[in-house]
């Protein structure tokens, strides 16, 4: 029993269970199979952004430019696809990821090499990237559904084994992220610079390069998210995904990533994504509740961070206690 209580994800699991029970009573239509499918399909975008955000936050920085990278790659791949007929999907996906990485390099350079505060740096880069997207799409024209053929859309909406492709890709990314976090040295380095920049520097880690790499990977994921977004909705615009970065950050915090860096759990992140998705759909199903959406999101974030801090402090206390007992 103690083991269960100690599980850091307990709060999230409880939250999910509570929401599901509430949905059972208040909005039973929640449980339609098609609901699940579309609900998950629509919210995969948030999952990508949350994973990308997690990588940056654990390095001690923050990234407000994820959605702008998404919009950029979505529009860019659409335009490429239109103008170069016959371009294979695999090439497009690769290009999307590369474009995302490139944008990530920009943010990473400004944050880690020019020592600009990450919030301001990524704010600036997001303006710039959105601006480029605006001009690239001919002064803000929308990418229309008939630009996309079945081939393109199948990247996201095709089905393998009954699940949409986009859901498979999301699962793939989550698994890869989990492996990366737990087994790769690069990830450990990122956690190190997140928890204490100076110590990491002294320990011989190239803080700048590691931070840059974090942004690059995050950018790549956002780039992939972009082409998925375009394929899923069959439309995109320079202002797509505006405001999603806040939800992504909130999801990461909920999932246990410390905002100052140095901590991240993929299991927490996955549960947080689930919880946020359920909350979003739940709110949209209850009539008259949409007006509370923002306020609720604010409360959730505050509660999550407080819980985060509380648990960190209490686990410290517990560890000290245990050490004391052992002596």
């Amino acid at each position: 029993m103690k083991h269960v209580l100690k599980n850091r994800n307990l709060g999230l699991i409880v939250g999910i269970v509570v929401m599901l029970i509430a949905a059972w009573f208040l909005t039973p239509q929640f449980y339609g199979m098609s609901t699940f499918a579309s609900m998950i399909r629509n919210n995969c975008v948030y999952a990508f952004l949350a994973v990308a955000e997690m990588l940056v936050i654990m390095s001690g920085a923050i990234d407000l430019s994820g959605p702008s990278v998404l919009a950029f790659t979505a529009c860019a791949t659409t335009l490429l696809y239109r103008n170069i007929p016959g371009i294979p999907m695999s090439v497009l996906i690769l290009l999307a990821i590369l474009m995302g990485v490139f944008c990530g390099v920009l943010s990473g350079l400004v944050t880690f090499y020019f020592d600009v505060q990450p919030m301001i740096a990524t704010l600036g880069t997001s303006y710039i990237i959105r601006g480029i997207t605006y001009f690239m799409t001919g002064k803000g024209q929308q990418m229309l559904p008939n630009y996309y053929t079945e081939e393109f859309k199948r990247i996201a909406t095709g089905k393998i084994l009954g699940l949409y492709n986009i859901i498979w890709v999301t699962i793939l990314i989550l698994i890869l992220a989990g492996i990366f976090l737990n087994y790769r040295q690069q990830a450990r380095r990122m956690l190190a610079i997140g928890s204490n920049k100076e110590s990491a520097q002294v320990a011989g880690i190239n803080v700048r390069l590691t931070g840059l790499k974090g942004y690059m990977i995050a950018g790549g994921i956002c780039g992939l998210a972009g082409i998925m977004y375009a394929a899923n909705y069959s439309m995109c615009l320079y202002s797509s995904a505006e405001g999603f970065e806040m939800t992504a950050i909130a999801t990461c915090i909920l999932g246990g990533a410390a905002i100052t860096g140095g901590e991240a759990r993929i299991s927490g992140n996955i549960l947080a994504i689930l919880l946020m998705t359920i909350i979003t759909v739940f709110i949209s199903m209850l009539p008259g509740l949409s007006i509370w959406a923002d306020a609720i999101q604010g409360i959730i974030i505050i509660a999550a961070v407080l819980l985060n801090i509380f648990m960190a402090k209490s686990s410290e206390r517990n560890e000290l206690k245990e050490r004391g007992q052992r002596m």
């Binding site: 239509q29 098609s34 609901t35 579309s38 975008v45 505006e242 759909v281 009539p287 007006i291």
Partner: peptide, 25 residues
């Protein structure tokens, strides 16, 4: 009337549409 708000955003409106679809009312 059952009014849902999509905030003039495609994703949001998509969520609301899915909700209608699921409720099937």
């Amino acid at each position: 009337m059952d009014i849902k708000y999509g905030n003039d955003d495609v994703t949001e409106s998509g969520n609301q549409a899915s909700a209608f679809l699921a409720e099937d009312k």
